[in-house]
Structures are given as structure tokens and as C-alpha cells.
Design a protein around this nucleic acid. Structure first.
Lengths: 162, 162
DNA sequence: CAGATTGTTGAGACGAAATCTCAATAAGGA
DNA sequence: TCCTTATTGAGATTTCGTCTCAACAATCTG
């Protein structure tokens, strides 16, 4: 299994805190680690039901937070509403480009930005625990599409202010 | 008046779209430009009522969004819930350090990070319209405080995974 | 393995934040 | 001043998430 290591980490996290290894927790773990992209709690709930597992909304939310606490998942607001979750492979940190046209999310990693963030924190005596960087805009496909029908300006669209 | 230029921009934005210059809009503009930090819609509503203006919640939300569209305000999630608004002086873009201890928000500007973001967008054929960068952690004051009473580890706190 | 202990679950109530509805109002033009 | 129509206010509604508590089940103990 590809997630053996993360699964072991999860089990140790639970046992180390006297928490129980339940069927619901394992099922949720499997589900989120079988997903590639970002997923929200409601979708996750639906996905579990679609698999024939009965699990309640409260349990999904509770255990999603548990996965975040254990360091195995990240919770972020990528759209305008709600949280999205994604699994984490070995603390691999990445940031996001979010297309406001089609909703596509592209991940990227920048060591340069990470280094500059470190410098900024040092300069402010700030001890960072996590960060969020999102760049919203149009992906290549949507940018071309909107360049074609270019009456956007005259329709009073929101001007870009980067 | 210090905001004359921004106010003019707002009026032009409204007129250019055939939208009306109402007392509520002007009052809201004054209020948000008289605030220094970040403020949420409910606080803004309360502040307006405290000034003796009667204005409804719906109007506050609607016009806050209008200010954002006009480029005069930014809307961001800085805490775990709700949006915070801040006024914008001339597209002056900045990012945030958010202390998870005391809630303090520190602003910073990094040209280096901005440049790297530009490169990343170019590499992905992505046309950015805006971005959000937040670094959560402990500010200098809170970091010292927690270093003092350092039994946190043994109490099973969430480990930092930057 | 049975029984006790106590963490976990499910269903729905609850809460906060934000949006929507629609009749009444008022801004801007004629 | 009158007309057209954008805007407002009050409250209902939606969305997203958390809380409550009795029933359940994971784990420990003898």
C-alpha cells in the first residue's frame, strides 16, 4: 500500500493520545488518501456514502480535523466559501494557483518564496507554524477564452489590482 | 480630506456604471477609510449604528462587496471564521502575519516574493488578478510567553508542521 | 472471554455568517 | 416636480459547521 507510512503515523498518533482506532477513522483516512486533489467535507461525506459506508456528517468533520491535527491533512479556504482538505505526503508544503474562471487549482512549490518568508518572520520575531499562499486569476485556458471575447472592459468587470 | 482621491475614484466607479451615490454608500466609505486596521462586516455595522446612522446589515454587506469590486477595499479571511475588510491606498498590496496566540495582525510587504509570484504565474501561463499570503504563528510577545511555561509538549499540543 | 470503562458515533438541534426576497423608498434625469 | 428604476430595510433563508446526548463499541482488566 502506498500510504503505509502515513497510515502508521496516523495509528501512532491515535494510540499515543489514547484515542481509538475506529472503522470510520480508517475509512476516512483511506478516502482522503485515495483522492488526488482538494476535497471538501460534503463531497467526502457523499463519497463515503457512495461507497456504501454509513457515516454521519459530524463524524466526517470531527475526523477531518483530527487528520489535520495529526499533520496528515491540510485544511484551507481555496474558494470563496467553505474549507477544502488535501492529504499531505511527508509535510510536502505547496501553494496554490486558483482559476477564477473554471475553478481549477494548480499546485506549485517555491523554495525562493519559502526562504523569503523565513526572513520576514525572523525580522519580526515571529515564529511561524504554517502559511497560506494563493494566487487567484485566470489559467491559460480561461485567459485565452476571455481574450477572444474581449468586451469584458466595457461590461464593467472588476479591474485587476495585483 | 485625506481620502479625496479614493473618494473620487469611488464616485467615478459608481457613475461609470450608472449606480447611485447614496448616503449609505458614502457613510460606509467614510467609515472604512477612517479605520486603520482590519474590520469585519458586523463591527462595521455596529460602528455605523454607534455613529447614529441607521443602516441595515444587508446594505453593509452589499456595499462592502461594491467597495471590493471598485478596488478600494480588500476582503480576506484572516482568522478562522468570517471575512475581514481593509481599505486600500492606491493598490498598495501587502501580506499578513497572523498571531494564533493573541490574534494580532502584522502587515508586511515583500517585493522579492511579489517578483517570484510573477515568475510562477508566467511559468504556468496564469494571469493573476490578486493574491493572498498569510503566515500564521506566534508573534514575539506570545512566543516568549509560551517559551516560559514550556510544558506544552507534554500536554499533547499540535506539533507545528511548517 | 466477560464485564467494565470510556472514547466515539449518529441524528438532529443549534449557531454564525452571509445572502436573498420584495415592498417601500429615494437618487438622478427629464 | 414627476418618472423611472436602483437601492434600501427587515426578516426569512441558505450555507457551513459545531454541539448535544443517548446509544454504541474499542480497549483494558481480571
Amino acid at each position: 500500500m502506498a500510504n503505509a507510512r502515513e497510515k502508521e503515523q496516523f495509528l501512532q498518533y491515535l494510540r499515543g493520545r489514547g484515542q481509538r482506532v475506529t472503522g470510520e477513522r480508517l475509512a476516512l483516512f483511506e478516502e482522503i488518501f485515495s483522492q488526488h486533489g482538494h476535497i471538501d467535507a460534503e463531497e467526502l461525506l457523499a463519497a463515503m456514502k457512495a461507497r456504501g459506508l454509513k457515516i454521519s456528517r459530524a463524524t466526517v468533520y470531527r475526523n477531518l480535523d483530527l487528520l489535520v491535527e495529526s499533520g496528515l491533512a491540510r485544511k484551507q479556504r481555496l474558494g470563496s466559501r467553505g474549507f477544502l482538505y488535501e492529504h499531505v505526503h511527508f509535510g510536502q508544503q505547496h501553494d496554490h494557483l486558483v482559476c477564477t474562471g473554471c475553478g481549477r487549482v494548480v499546485e506549485f512549490v517555491s523554495l525562493g518564496i519559502a526562504a523569503l518568508q523565513g526572513e520576514i518572520c525572523r525580522a519580526h520575531g515571529f515564529v511561524p507554524t504554517r502559511h497560506t499562499l494563493q494566487i487567484a486569476g485566470l489559467c491559460n485556458r480561461c485567459a485565452e477564452a476571455s481574450a477572444a471575447s474581449d468586451t469584458a472592459q466595457s461590461r464593467g468587470e472588476v479591474p485587476a489590482h495585483v
